[in-house]
């Protein structure tokens, strides 16, 4: 961890602590850290660089993505990501076929390298998990075929 990220981290943690101890979460404070640009980006590379600072990654088979091969309902696709890598700082989920590929990002620097959730997929595409470990990005993908889309109506 370099000095810059350390500073950012400690600031963020400090702000969250203050908000919680005051018994309320001021939306302005929280939203300041929200990467709006990442969620508005229309392609995976720019979403990734807005979310984690870089769009370049190396492929890694150590990242395990558990998702169905065929999802009947694109509105609810269960996805589980785990990895044997150490020093995992964050896991970012993207779906390349979605209107905006960014799904969400999980800061796991104090947690185990495991996260499970349910996501929406507009159509058949790749679920991509990007793991930040030791300041570097690693990614793996899994194709999920969607028979009924979950975005748009």
């Amino acid at each position: 961890m370099n000095r810059r990220t350390l500073l950012k981290r400690s600031l963020a943690v400090g702000a969250a602590g203050v908000a919680a101890s005051a018994g309320l979460l001021a939306p302005g404070q929280v939203l300041a850290a929200y990467p709006t640009a990442a969620f508005e980006a229309k392609d995976t590379a720019s979403a990734l660089s807005a979310a984690v600072g870089s769009g370049s990654y190396s492929d890694s088979a150590d990242i395990k993505i558990k998702a169905p091969d065929i999802a009947e309902n694109g509105a609810v696709v269960p996805v589980t990501v785990s990895t044997s890598m150490g020093n995992v700082e964050s896991v970012t989920l993207l779906v390349d076929a979605n209107n905006s590929p960014m799904v969400g990002s999980f800061d796991l620097s104090k947690a185990e390298a495991f996260v499970s959730t349910r996501i929406k997929m507009g159509k058949t595409g790749n679920v991509m998990a990007v793991v930040k470990s030791g300041g570097k990005l690693y990614a793996n993908q899994k194709e999920v075929k969607v028979t009924i889309g979950g975005c748009g109506g």
């Binding site: 696709v77 799904v103 969400g104 800061d107 349910r118 996501i119 929406k120």
Partner: peptide
Amino acid sequence: TAVWGGAISKNPYLSF
């Protein structure tokens, strides 16, 4: 901590 967009399913499930 997690940041989410609208692509997380309705009535979200989260496990960690």
